[in-house]
Amino acid sequence: MNAKEDLEFAKEHRIAPGKRPNLKKLDTKVRGPFDDKDDAKAFTAETNHKIRDLQYRMFVEEKQSLLVVLQAPDAAGKDGLIRKVLGQMNPQGCRTYPFKVPTKEERAHDFLWRIHRCTPAAGKVSVFNRSHYEDVLVVRVNDLVPKRVWKDRYKIINDFEHMLAEAGTRILKFYLHISPEEQLERFKKRLDNPDKHWKLNTGDYAARDQWDQYREAYEDAIEQCNTDHAPWHVIPADHKWYRDASVAAIVYDTFLSMDPQLPPVDVDLDEIRSLYQREAAELGKASSS
Rank of each mutant, 00 (worst) to 15 (best):
M58K: 10
V85H: 01
K240Y: 05
K151A: 12
R243N: 07
R107P: 00
F128Q: 05
L54P: 04
D244Q: 13
H177K: 04
P73F: 13
A230G: 09
A245P: 03
S257Q: 15
N22E: 14
L269E: 11
S288Y: 06
S246D: 08
A72S: 13
V127E: 06
R208L: 15
A286P: 01
A248P: 09
L200R: 13
E182F: 08
K78W: 07
I115S: 04
P21F: 05
G87Y: 10
R130V: 03
A207E: 15
E279T: 12
I178C: 05
S65D: 01
D36T: 09
R95W: 02
R215M: 14
L191K: 13
D110E: 10
L184G: 02
L26I: 15
Q88N: 11
M1K: 05
I235A: 07
N158K: 05
A245W: 02
R20N: 02
Q277F: 02
L256Q: 15
K188L: 11
S287R: 15
F255W: 02
L184E: 14
S246K: 03
F187S: 02
A237H: 01
V251E: 09
T96N: 07
V30I: 11
K84T: 13
W232P: 01
R153I: 08
V141K: 10
G284I: 03
W113V: 09
Y218V: 12
